[in-house]
Design a protein around this nucleic acid. Structure first.
Lengths: 254, 254
DNA sequence: CGGATTATTGAAAAGCCTCAAGAGTAGTGG
DNA sequence: CCACTACTCTTGAGGCTTTTCAATAATCCG
């Protein structure tokens, strides 16, 4: 049921919430003119409901569609041949899921839905075209991929060089900041819809160790937990432990 | 002496080796027309000799120039606040060093010369401009950054999920393939101009452990070493150990 | 040649993992 | 609404990989 498109909208309709979110997001990356926005709105698209853990992009696939995440969370992921998984990135509503493939012929990683949600699917060739017909839109796309690449670099530093407690604290800081940015209602208390195994896969740790470290952070009075709900009790403390510096998020451009 | 430009060339000169390399590289990313090439050749640039370990880009800096690596190796790097270093990427001749900053206002990582070499420095605004005036060139730039991002994702998998011997073997495979691609004279025997500490920083390991694992790989008959010279003795074996699959290098586009 | 960096080796410790079992939680169908 | 099942979380014990510390040997460079 998840994979059936349930709504189709066209150019002349008034701005749908999906397009509104996309335009809001892109214009934070780069200023857009009314004409740019009109062209974005003119892109044919399909809204689709997604199930939790559904594959949205598969490694090796030839990219045809470009998905934009409207509701729910997703993550990028790669597997070793003996089945170990590394989560490469977390995507929030307002993120494009396929800009990595905009000019590559083959996808090099998987994208999976973390929760159920809604994606907007557009034609990749149409977006390629738009990226050069409307340079401002192209620059906004470009900025989006550059910011994701920057986050990737920080993750590599995190996984390669920080011990487990710092590493986990850093992930929690990043998600806190990024979630708060898309959803102003979030202050210090937010839902982290990841299992401890998924957290481990994002950090290069086992779920068992994540469990122990989470408990340690809680004992230190940095966070509180209730199921998947996470509350940052001591933001300066968590930040300091994590050695967190939001420069890499390029917030003024996102 | 390193940082003094030693040559300046202009539009109407015949193709310099620097521009020739750049055009060769870009046209593997995306086909270029003669007009595209003419415009690339018209970009004003400065050739500059670099010293080993010289900083080419600094985190926090506002990017102004865009450097293209013509000779020698470089690496991208980030530091934690207590001085631990993670090497994020290795750059070979033919790589652009600042495309990450093409549309961002602040650099989020450092780039350092690994060996002495030569960089071509161009104006970043001129390149931004060219990227949209000549779409084919823009696509080629874009592909270059996408491939670097893909390599980054593989590194995250490598560092997060593979044990030290596999991890080191994977790095050796990647460098072998990439070096052989820029320099056909390289078969199985190549110079790896990294100290064991730098290898460790690229892999999230200590130099001591890199030393021990290198010795193990040698004992297993996978590689041979003489100083910094590295010879792959058993390529299929090394590849198998590393779980190496070159898909992520997007070779047909690089 | 001399000084600095890099490589090598050993011993001990730390951090994280594996294995395993039990408790909690969520979703499903009767 | 309850019971059943499948996940997910939690905890302990023991082991393995990797690190730390330290000292010596080799190499590079001016």
């Amino acid at each position: 049921m998840c994979s059936r498109p349930f709504q189709r909208e066209h150019a002349l309709t008034k701005l749908s919430p999906a397009v509104a979110l996309m335009i809001r997001k892109l214009s934070r990356h780069h200023p857009l003119s009314p004409e740019d926005m009109r062209e974005i709105n003119a892109l044919p698209f399909v809204l689709r409901q997604t199930c939790s853990s559904e594959y949205l992009v598969r490694e090796g696939q030839q990219p045809i569609r470009c998905a934009f995440l409207m509701e729910g969370y997703a993550y990028r992921q790669k597997l070793t041949s003996n089945g170990e998984r590394q989560i490469i990135a977390i995507n929030l509503p307002g993120d494009f899921l396929d800009l990595q493939n905009l000019f590559l012929t083959e996808s090099d990683h998987n994208v999976q839905a973390l929760t159920s949600g809604i994606v907007v699917e557009m034609s990749l060739p149409a977006m390629r075209n738009l990226a050069f017909r409307r340079p401002a839109v192209g620059k906004a796309f470009w900025v989006a991929t550059l910011i994701e690449a920057s986050i990737n670099r920080e993750w590599l530093l995190n996984v390669g060089r920080r011990p487990a407690p710092e590493r986990l604290a850093h992930l929690l800081c990043e998600i806190q900041v990024r979630v708060a940015r898309t959803d102003a209602s979030v202050a210090v208390d937010y839902e982290l819809p990841m299992t401890q195994e998924q957290i481990g896969d994002a950090l290069g740790l086992t779920s068992v160790h994540v469990n122990r470290v989470l408990k340690t952070l809680q004992k230190q009075g940095l966070i509180n937990r209730d199921r998947r709900r996470l509350q940052v009790v001591d933001w300066p403390g968590l930040r300091a432990l994590a050695d967190f510096n939001e420069r890499y998020l390029h917030l003024q451009q996102s």
